[in-house]
Nucleic acid binder design. Structure first.
Lengths: 227, 227
DNA sequence: CGAATTTTTTAACAAAATTTTAATTCTTGC
DNA sequence: GCAAGAATTAAAATTTTGTTAAAAAATTCG
């Protein structure tokens, strides 16, 4: 249950102060002083929260925040020096969950951490944040969002529904009739080629655009999505 | 509840006097005579207030104050010899919360300590409130208040409730029906476009006014707020 | 209490985006 | 090489959304 907090801060005394404050309250901590290494560790290791200083060697906190947010939901609290108003504003711009300005009281730090963790857990419970993965494609049902190689793909409602149906049945070939029934809600076997048209749309937005084959045709039968 | 006060003073008789005065009033105390060690202890141990003499071996009080203030909010009262006016002024510039000139009456000491502690507690209460952050927008649930780029946004009750629901579910697309249920309390699927109208109101007060996109439409599905 | 103000809801229309149709071109397997 | 199935494309049809104004409801204030 002890949450693991990643402290990214290059000034040793401050890092120590943060570490002591947090460990005294029962959190586990890890430290990193270098920006680029911090970015790598956030992606590879599993932390419950990141305390991120803005000023860092090699890669600054804002850049880290932005890049991490492209792939991860890990809670981030930005830490900025007093009166660095520009930093504050930019930092928030990039998707941090909260921010603190130095100097701060330990109580404030703890209150903010608990607040961010609580809200994050509530969100997890409510949304059951699930995802489907095929190759470099990730489909997030609650967000109605699809990314390929970290880049968001803009889909219409029908395109999304069709892709979701394929992805939910990864590797299975689905007939046009099955698809019409499930995605379009037709209960008769229609004389239409909408499915073909929409498969074509999806391919142009995904397969063609990213140069990888996701959607396969099985002649005389239907379509399937595969790794 | 007994506050712990850190006495940094290299003249033993004065330190003893301070200690006695404070302990008689129910405060806990700790002592330190060396400047550099005092600095380290302030960062590592947890004190509710620091009484800091200006003249100290190895690192003077002003330097300590300045360095501590880079990270910590701990209340500091500077203690200076009589008529060292320059010191007095500089001490305040460096972030001390109050100052006293020697010699002083015990009553004055206690009054200043209580004053500083009271103000600090007020500050803490204000700082500990939770907040939801999206880009440059901050929503303070307890205050019923929303700011963008530090500027307050005037919202009606329904506008605020809708925005809060979106922000609580940052990144997730919420359908009009979900919104109607949660924000309007409708339990039937209404034939109404109030949600659209209120989204439009919010956009004119936030997105349009501040020239940043907060509220996104997912056609055929609903709305989401995103960084 | 009642007038004035503010907020909420309804309704209508224009604009924009999506979906469907349908005609044409391209592929595949025999 | 040919025929059936599949892919593509553009235009037409439909749906959805954004915005406004006015009506209705709620709230404030003297």
């Amino acid at each position: 249950m002890a949450e693991k907090i990643f402290i990214v801060e290059d000034e040793r005394p401050i890092a120590r102060l943060l570490q002591l404050t947090l460990e005294r309250e029962g959190f586990k901590t890890a430290n990193e002083t270098n920006g680029r290494r911090a970015y790598e560790r956030i992606l590879q290791e599993k932390y419950d929260l990141v305390l991120l200083d803005v000023m860092l060697p090699e890669m600054d906190g804002m850049e880290i925040c932005k890049r991490v947010r492209e792939v991860s939901d890990v809670p981030i609290i930005m830490v900025t020096a007093r009166d660095e108003v520009r930093d504050k504003v930019e930092g928030l711009d990039l998707g941090a969950d909260d921010y603190m300005t130095k100097p701060f009281a330990p109580e404030e730090l703890l209150a903010r951490i608990r607040g961010v963790l609580r809200r994050h857990n509530e969100r997890l419970r409510n949304a059951e944040e699930s995802r489907y993965v095929v190759k470099n494609m990730i489909l997030y049902p609650e967000r109605y969002e699809v990314t390929v190689k970290g880049e968001k793909v803009e889909l219409t409602h029908k395109e999304y529904a069709l892709l979701k149906y394929l992805v939910e049945n990864k590797r299975n070939v689905l007939s046009r009739d099955q698809i019409l029934q499930t995605v379009w809600g037709y209960d008769y076997i229609g004389d239409t080629n909408v499915v073909d048209v929409y498969i074509s749309y999806l391919r142009s937005k995904i397969d063609d655009k990213f140069g990888e084959k996701y959607i396969y045709t099985t002649r005389g039968v239907g379509y399937a999505i595969r790794d």
